[in-house]
Design a protein around this nucleic acid. Structure first.
Lengths: 245, 245
DNA sequence: GTCTATATGTGGATAGAC
DNA sequence: GTCTATCCACATATAGAC
């Protein structure tokens, strides 16, 4: 805990730099020498403090996910306690799950947008040790929120809810990853999504939460044809029409 | 074009193996020796035929994306010709864009699910040469479909459509990537989504297209509060309610 | 076009002094 | 806990014979 160099622990400094470099270049393309160089620590320090490069990546995620997923459980507990015997609304469940995540982007102490982008980019990494790690970190919170969604949508087949939970995870993950695709879609502007500050997190939240809720509550597959016919009559209008109902 | 080994060109065999290995392990974690080993070609063959490992990756994608994105443009041309002066429905635009993609998963000659998974996993890769490559490959088709969506949703702010197009790309990309998250969400079954056959592509399409359309047509952000109130009265019911309207 | 042999660099990890 | 020095496996790429 004593600092021989500056106000930050060597161990913490390694984690901070690793988080940023893994985000910017990916795990495989980031060498331990790049990390120790930027962190201004000795090459051997990573193995001393973490044991291996793989263990370093796990620790980078563990310190953030431990907070995130325990916070998610606490919030869900609170919501369910308030609701008593009643089921939560889907929008409440989504707000608890994804809102908690997005709030990390506004707080640099929780990793900020750097961590959110890293998370989005790493969730699709095919490396076995990464998939295994995430499976363990997410198992409990996913199970709890899945049950909450089941209760909140009692008339929707559970299998459908499972798929849509997965699709929501995907939308969010990709949006956080912050590829250049948004800029390609948008045109040429150096877009807000590639920003890494707190304001970007808020803007993203405002845009993505309605999208997720719309997807979750979309017509069920077996009804899609019927809905298409209705939409044809209505001009396949945007959901603004809900206000006129 | 002459085969000294079997019925497949050396060049094509390299591309096929590279596609599969890049999918399974990622670009950085796949060595040229792994590729030439499985393809049973000489190590130097990659550099002879493609010039470099980076160029090999680009060619793996180019042979698939050239077909995909030109097909997308042809289909959009046909739809717009049929529609005449009328705007397309959003569902038609989505079907043309994402349906064409998903149909590749059913045809091994177009890469099948192996290519779709590779695409989903690579779209979030941070490597500069990959982002630059995708930007070029997608620019035209994205611009065309973006305009089609603008026309199909004239009352929705263009900025909102841009964001939702991006979110849809993300949902699809992540779903194709086929991480273990679906299995985590689902429970423990060796799930259908991790299958790589044509049937998996059809099942995914049936699940994801309604989700995308629901997200695209979700209430606009400024109306979310009002919709939440309506949903509260209606019990935040699933979209099955559209049938009763 | 294909192959062998090799150039040249970098990777993660560790032994052992301090 | 930190540092130097080093081990050794493996990477991409190429030169040049056939």
């Amino acid at each position: 805990m004593t600092d021989t160099r500056n106000n930050l622990d060597t161990r913490e400094r390694i984690l901070d730099v690793a988080e940023r470099l893994f985000m910017a270049a990916g795990y495989e393309a980031t060498s331990m020498r790049m990390i120790t160089g930027e962190a201004e620590v000795n090459l051997a320090a990573i193995n001393y403090h973490f044991g291996s490069k793989e263990a370093l990546l796990r620790e980078v995620f563990r310190r953030r996910l431990a907070w995130l997923n325990s916070e998610r459980l606490v919030i869900l507990d609170e919501l369910e306690a308030q609701a008593g015997a009643a089921a939560l609304k889907p929008s409440q469940v989504l707000e608890a799950f994804f809102g908690t995540l997005l709030r990390m982007g506004e707080d640099p102490a929780l990793g900020g947008m750097v961590f959110l982008r890293l998370l989005g980019r790493t969730l699709t990494d095919p490396a076995d040790f990464i998939r295994t790690f995430f499976a363990g970190e997410y198992a409990e919170v996913i199970a709890r929120y899945k049950r909450a969604l089941f209760r909140s949508l009692p008339d929707v087949p559970k299998e459908e809810i499972i798929w849509r939970f997965h699709f929501m995870l995907g939308s969010m993950s990709y949006a956080l990853a912050g590829t250049d695709m948004l800029q390609i879609v948008a045109g040429c502007e150096p877009n807000e999504a590639s920003a890494t500050n707190a304001e970007a997190a808020r803007r993203l939240a405002a845009r993505v939460m309605p999208f997720l809720l719309g997807g979750l509550r979309a017509p069920l597959p077996q009804f899609v044809d019927a809905v298409a016919q209705r939409d044809e009559a209505a001009g396949d209008a945007p959901a603004r029409t809900v206000l006129t109902a």
